[in-house]
Design a protein around this nucleic acid. Structure first.
Lengths: 285, 285
DNA sequence: GAACCCTTGTACCATATGTTTCACGTATCG
DNA sequence: CGATACGTGAAACATATGGTACAAGGGTTC
């Protein structure tokens, strides 16, 4: 499946002319950057004229130079994906297949996250005056729950919005510019989540969207977008990486309001007869 | 030294606008192919307009989109070089630094060589009617010597052309369309070798050029170009890879005329009182 | 030696590509 | 609430880019 271009060159080598070969050789010996440059540049480096390059790639089976470049781009992308996979494998040698796949997904997610963005997001979430609304789609609601529970341990005014459309609509009425709406939306994207985001944005609330790489429609209104690589190697989806990105954000908030959070934690744990665990499900009261 | 673009994005993140960030995020999450596509395509994938992409890359310090792409291409190229280095290291774990460097150089060379081209070259060299002239530059003459000696064991009419300019000029007089001129020319390129190639080409001789990746001026007249990656990781040059490519070609010739060669070898070794070693220096007669 | 084919570069063309301008919309600040 | 500054995309623009037609040169064949 890889190095298709090199294979094509080998395959067609006998039918290539002198100029064609100069081009092909340059593509291989300066792989891959030579083929990613413009037609004229590649021609110059190969020591032939531009038309010769076109004739060469046509003989290799591409209908145009841009098409050839697209194929090369895909090949490069594939190699990079492979690379990051191998990269992770170096440290996951003795895991089984499934474990390694999850590890990779999470690792890619961490790589994606930008410290600067997380910091700014944390600063926003640390402002305890505004209230935070957490919600997700059919399955990602679970991640929203975890996020809400954890964030509540760090600051007040953090609520989990019910999945019920009617309750959601009611809650939406009171959303104002001081509110922060944190949405979790992963493919297949939830239209209800999107419309909630839309309406909340119209009410000037800050929108924070945790999503996957392909990026949900919610990003259109979002002030912050935190992407996670939820694709496993076999194409299946996993929420592990999603949770990972959520916890990265939480960790940043914890740094911001560490002192206050600690005292708050103490307050919580000092409440008699209430286990901390029960807080996570919102039944503490 | 690497991932300069990701670094720039992190560095400038705070001064990026919403659209800028959409662009930057897309560049990172679809790295590197997204940034290698056209301006319009990247804009589309990021969900912004074309001008926004331009503004973004300008904020990152690039004066134009093509300049940004060039930087990205270089980065990708660097990653690939690194990759092939690592690739080789996997099998050279217990070698010392120098050994590994040479091994890499040779491995890259083998990767560069095209079976199809070597086969055709071997077919040419196997035609024992035409005579073969071998020569090189100041240092590469040594490789020419080895090549000549080895090829002579496989077929007749293989001579080593003297490095002396006058003798070379004299030899050139008798060059005809049936001759095969095998040149070894590695940077820094030898002008004398080039002019020999030029004149031999005018006399319709077949030109075979063993050179490095940057490709000597001789390639302009060459019918066959066999490239070797003579650059070591520290920038120094090595002829090991050159010799490697020469021997790859010889091996192919050996396959072609294996039977004849074996009997010829026997003939040679049956000559009494003449060590095979002395053949290499041309003193056997 | 003439007629053919093949290869290649020059000159030209169409247009896709990157860039600039400008006006609209939105937030910010007095 | 008005004025200012900023971010954004639509549209117009210039040109770099890829593609084509054609003719010259060389090799081959009969």
């Amino acid at each position: 499946m890889k190095n298709r271009i090199a294979d094509r060159i080998r395959e067609h080598w006998s039918s290539l002319t002198r100029s064609d070969r100069l081009v092909a050789r340059r593509i291989l010996s300066e792989y891959p950057s030579a083929g990613l440059k413009t037609l004229a540049e590649l021609a110059g480096r190969a020591g032939v004229s531009a038309p010769s390059v076109i004739r060469c790639v046509k003989k290799l089976g591409y209908s145009s130079y841009p098409e050839f470049q697209a194929a090369l781009r895909d090949e490069v992308q594939e190699a990079f994906d492979e690379l990051s996979k191998k990269d992770a494998d170096g440290r996951t040698g003795d895991m089984n297949e499934a474990e390694a796949a999850y590890t990779r997904s999470v690792r890619r997610t961490v790589k994606l996250s930008l410290d600067a963005e997380l910091e700014q997001l944390a600063a926003l979430l640390a402002r305890s005056k505004s209230s935070v609304l957490c919600l997700g789609g059919r399955v990602s609601q679970a991640v929203a729950m975890v996020f809400q529970a954890q964030l509540l341990r760090l600051r007040r005014n953090v609520e989990l919005v019910s999945p019920n459309p009617i309750e959601r609509a009611e809650r939406l009425i009171d959303v104002s510019r001081n509110d922060i709406v944190v949405l979790f939306d992963y493919a297949p994207y939830d239209t209800q989540t999107a419309s909630f985001a839309n309406l909340a944005a119209e009410r000037k609330a800050s929108i924070v969207c945790f999503t996957d790489i392909d990026q949900s429609p919610v990003t259109e209104w979002a002030d912050f977008v935190i992407a996670a690589d939820t694709k496993l190697d076999d194409g299946r989806q996993s929420l592990a990486a999603a949770l990972c990105s959520a916890e990265l954000a939480l960790a940043e908030v914890r740094v911001r309001i560490g002192a206050r959070a600690r005292s708050r934690s103490l307050d919580i744990s000092s409440v008699p007869d209430v286990g901390l665990d029960s807080l996570a499900t919102g039944n503490a009261t």
